[in-house]
Design a protein around this nucleic acid. Structure first.
Lengths: 143, 143
DNA sequence: TATTGTTATACTCTATAACTATA
DNA sequence: TATAGTTATAGAGTATAACAATA
């Protein structure tokens, strides 16, 4: 970015793009640092969070927005640690239902705790944060 | 997220976190789709963008916020395509200056074009975008 | 025939540690 | 001794294609 030219004249998508990515990077960085303490990668944590209730692997893949073949590996690693189990379903024996173990539920609770305590937005007042939320929601909602 | 409960009561960092990440994901997704057409990964595009002027590899690593050993591979791939060159520096023969080739400059121009045409924020008016920019900038600036 | 999940494969990014060559 | 860059290694995520079991 050229920082020498007139800032006031700027009102383009590029600035917002850069700032959104920068802020996201900052917040995600803090999030991942917390996850590292739980020995979880981002996809692993996303998967745990999904498993508030059991889901078939295909559904998990869809939510993770990745190919189903990847879920096999992600689940393998979580299953090896005893956080997740693959359960067969009687109605359709092709399907494997992913289910948290007790240990998995405890870790999931830790992840939720991290998320709900997410720091990094202390600079904004309550009303500013409301405004930001509104603008972000409208940007995200856009087709 | 539970969308059935009272939205007005919400004003916590978790919502903003989720929205920032979601919007970032959306914008980055569009960005990466464009980069794919240029056969560039994200780190490769970031590196090209940095090379408006030549830089030592260590400096590139710092800007990419990754270990210097990774830059070797990223540069290898770009160099193999003739987009970047490693130039030795007389003053300190340990250093390798990264420099764009003519082809690299052309690709970099394409990347800059993609960035400056970033779509995905059409839902906001000019003044809303200004507000969003301001709020994001303050959030990012926060220590 | 179509679908669910796995396997095989290949690639990029990531970090750490050991190494070379310079300084 | 310290620094710049490379190499070796290992691991995680990503996609594609081929496969087995099941529907």
């Amino acid at each position: 970015m050229d920082v020498t030219h007139d800032e006031a004249a700027d009102n383009n998508a590029e600035d917002v793009f850069r700032l959104v990515v920068e802020l996201s990077r900052k917040l995600m960085g803090e999030y991942e640092a917390q996850l590292e303490r739980l020995d979880l990668t981002l996809p692993q944590a996303q998967l745990l969070r999904q498993l508030g209730e059991p889901r078939p692997m295909a559904e998990a893949a869809e939510r993770l927005r990745c190919d189903p073949s990847n879920v096999t590996g992600i689940v393998d690693r979580l299953e090896k640690r005893g956080l997740v189990e693959r359960k067969s379903v009687a109605e359709d024996r092709r399907v494997k239902q992913l289910e948290l173990t007790d240990a998995g539920m405890r870790v999931r609770t830790e992840v939720e705790r991290v998320v709900s305590a997410m720091p990094g937005l202390e600079a904004l007042s309550t009303s500013d944060r409301d405004t930001l939320k509104d603008l972000l929601a409208r940007s995200v909602a856009e087709s």
